[in-house]
């Protein structure tokens, strides 16, 4: 009975004064839990304990991320989005946020036979493998595929070390 009274995460007047009813708080906590679980998966995968060919995404949008010596690249499939509807920013040098809202098609009244596509707001934050030049980040959207190019900070680029012969 005590649990019933206390566990009311949504619309609870008891929790509201502490700001817990703020939906972003909930979303952030969930995102953090998702992130931890993804990190675990990645760890297992690195040690060959996971047989999955690729990891399912933990949040929308699913991301592919790779890098070369100069840049980090992030790609996401975001069909139906315009670049103007997306908010992309880097904070703290290595925290990338992709945020936006996918709107449902404007349809006059009719009967829905299938509704498989999802809509709504999304936000995804990820930590990049190294600090990037925040001012030089570029994003392109083509055929519903978003590509973000993030040039690495000079300190993060690989450097060939001169080895002196004795």
């Amino acid at each position: 009975m005590v649990m019933n009274t206390l566990w009311r995460p949504f619309g609870s007047s008891v929790l509201e004064p502490f700001g817990f009813s703020d939906p972003t708080w909930l979303a952030d906590s969930l995102a953090e839990m998702n992130r931890l679980s993804a990190e675990m998966d990645r760890m297992f995968r690195r040690f060959g304990l996971s047989d999955r060919p690729e990891l399912p995404a933990v949040a929308y949008p699913a991301l592919d991320l790779w890098q070369d010596d100069n840049c980090v690249y992030v790609e996401a499939e975001l069909p139906g989005m315009d670049i103007g509807d997306l908010e992309i920013y880097v904070t703290g040098g290595d925290q990338l946020t992709i945020r936006g809202e996918r709107k449902p098609p404007a349809v006059e009244k009719g009967t829905w036979h299938r509704q498989e596509r999802g809509y709504g707001q999304f936000s995804r934050l990820l930590t990049l493998p190294c600090p990037v030049k925040t001012d030089e980040v570029e994003a392109h959207l083509k055929d519903g595929v978003l590509t973000i190019t993030l040039p690495k900070c000079d300190a993060a680029k690989p450097r060939r070390l001169a080895i002196k012969a004795e």
Partner: peptide, 21 residues
């Protein structure tokens, strides 16, 4: 993934095909 809606005059299908030109 597809959405299909039927109105009086037509069937309308919306499909997500990212990366397809």
């Amino acid at each position: 993934r597809f959405d299909i809606v039927e109105t009086e005059g037509e069937l309308v299908l919306y499909g997500d095909l990212p990366g397809v030109s």
